[in-house]
Every structure is written in C-alpha cells, then in structure tokens.
Design a binder for these strands. Structure first.
Length: 201
DNA sequence: ACCTGCGCACCAT
DNA sequence: ATGGTGCGCAGGT
C-alpha cells in the first residue's frame, strides 16, 4: 500500500519550502529559477519537473505565489503568514480584497473565486457561522470598487494604481527640514503620477 | 565557477 | 515607526 504520488507530494512540498527558506535567508527572491536551482543542488530532476511541482503546490495552497515588482515570488504560507482574516458582515475587507487582486497580478483581472482562493492561502480565513463567504467577499469587492481601489469589468476585478497613503489627514505636516540632495541623479521617472484617470488599455 | 551573506533602499502597514 | 522584501555586490569555498 504505497502511494508514490501522495508521498512524493509531501516530499516535494518539503523540498520546495526548504528551498524558499534557504533563498529567503540569503535575502534573495524566491523565483522559479532560484527554487529550481536550489532543489537541483540536492536532487537530480529537470527544471521542468521542479517547476511543475511548484505550480502544483501553489494550486494546492501549499505555497503562496505573489506578484511583486514585476515578477512572481513564492512564499511559505505557514512560515510567516499566520494572519487571521475575519469575515463577518461588520468587517470591511475591501483592502484585503484589493491587496489580493494586486498580488495575483493577473492581467485580465481576477474573479471572486480566485480572490477567495488567494485569501485562504494568505490568511487563515474565519467565517462567521451564519455568513456566506462569497457574499461577504462580493460586498468587500464592491466596496473596494466604490473606494476606487478596484475596477469591475466583465466579472473580473482589476487593481487601480492607488498610493493608499491616506493616513495624512491627521497630521498633514510636511517636514522637509533638511535636504541632503546634492549630487543625486535625477533619474526618477514618473513616480508621482497618481490621479491619472485613464482606463488603461 | 558556485554558494552565502549583507547593506540598504523600497514598500506596506 | 516598524517590519518584510530583494537588488546588487562583496566575500568565502
């Protein structure tokens, strides 16, 4: 009675998680390439095999895939992600939903289904007994749209560029006391371009 | 060549 | 303010 598939699944999961930890401890990005490389140092598998296992682990929720700075990174969901997301009618989850959409980084937008899956991997989602997850999430997404964090188009949600630094109402004082900019290169392209209301494509 | 480690800038909370 | 992230580079093997 040996299930080589199931056993292999667990083993691969451990290898992947170990690879991620190793790479992170070196302060490097756990990308597909690095994970492949790290695993191949100890086990003789082809890159395609490793990346396929990686994708499968992501699909199963054993590994968290997040889009960040133009590339995908992989995380250990249990390693650092033990945040609790409480889903109840009186909790506003619009920020969490918007963040999920951002991290999914899907060009064509993300569906509620995908968003829910991502949230369940990134948080420990706790749902009120009489509440419906989808209803709550839909409300959160709707709120996110109303707040301008997301757009809703053809059943998919897309992130809008949002500085989200709205905590400046309390103390709107700017302290530009010192200016240590002397010989600094001025190679900062448009980084100050929020408030652009174009609809993208 | 490969692997490991780190400063620091960048970003979100 | 605080803490996570990862580029770029230095140092070790």
């Amino acid at each position: 009675m040996s299930e080589p598939d199931d056993v292999g699944k667990e083993v691969w999961k451990r290898w992947i998680l170990e690879a991620i930890h190793k790479i992170r401890s070196q302060k490097q990005r756990p990308s597909v390439e690095r994970i492949c490389h790290a695993i191949r140092q100890h086990h003789n598998y082809h890159e395609d095999v490793v990346s396929e296992r990686l994708e499968r682990a992501v699909r199963e929720g054993a590994v968290l895939k997040v889009y960040n700075k133009g590339q995908s990174s992989y995380k250990d969901p249990g390693g650092l992600q033990n945040k609790i997301l409480r889903l109840s009618p009186d909790v506003d989850v619009s920020r969490a939903v918007a963040k999920a959409v951002r991290e999914l980084g899907e060009r064509d937008g993300s569906t509620l289904k995908t968003i829910e899956k991502h949230l369940r991997q990134a948080y420990q989602v706790i749902v009120e007994p009489d509440a419906d997850v989808r209803t709550l999430l839909r409300a959160g997404a709707k709120r996110a749209v109303a707040r301008g964090l997301l757009t809703h188009h053809a059943g998919a949600y897309k992130a809008t560029d949002r500085p989200l630094t709205s905590a400046g109402e309390r103390t709107p004082k700017k302290k530009h006391s010192q200016d240590q900019h002397q010989l600094e290169k001025v190679n900062k392209p448009s980084l100050i371009c929020f408030y652009s209301k174009l609809h993208c494509e």
